[in-house]
C-alpha cells in the first residue's frame, strides 16, 4: 500500500471541505464542512502514524476528535444564537465585523 493513496484521499476530502465552507450559507452546513476538513487532517495523522510505526499519530487523531466535539458544541451554540437574534442562520448576513 502506498502512503500517498491515503494522503491524496485526505487532500481531496480537505478540498471538498474548503469548497463547502466557502460556498455554503447555512451555518450548520458550514460546520459540517469543517468536520470534513478535520477528518482529512485526522487521516493524515493516522496514515503517518502507520508509516512511522508510531502510536503518536493515532493519539493525536483522538485528541482532534475531542477538539472537534468541543468545536461543534460551541459552533452550534453560536449558530443557535444567531438564529435566535436574526431568525435566520444565513452566515452571509452576519457581517458585524464590517469595517
Amino acid at each position: 500500500m502506498w502512503l500517498n493513496q491515503f494522503l491524496f484521499f485526505a487532500a481531496i476530502l480537505f478540498c471538498i471541505g474548503v469548497y463547502g465552507v466557502l460556498t455554503r450559507k447555512n451555518g450548520v452546513l458550514v460546520l459540517m464542512s469543517i468536520e470534513l476538513i478535520l477528518n482529512a487532517v485526522n487521516i493524515n495523522l493516522v496514515a503517518f502514524g502507520a508509516y512511522n510505526q508510531d502510536i503518536a499519530g493515532q493519539v493525536f487523531a483522538l485528541f482532534i476528535i475531542a477538539v472537534a466535539a468541543a468545536e461543534v458544541g460551541v459552533g452550534l451554540a453560536i449558530v443557535l444564537l444567531i438564529y435566535r437574534n436574526r431568525r435566520s442562520i444565513n452566515v452571509a448576513e452576519a457581517d458585524l465585523l464590517k469595517g
Binding site: 465552507v21 452566515v91 452571509a92 457581517d95 458585524l96 465585523l97 469595517g99
Partner: peptide
C-alpha cells in the same frame, strides 16, 4: 475599507 466587509466567507 470595502475589504473589511465583515463577511466571514
Amino acid at each position: 475599507r470595502k475589504v473589511q466587509s465583515g463577511k466571514v466567507r
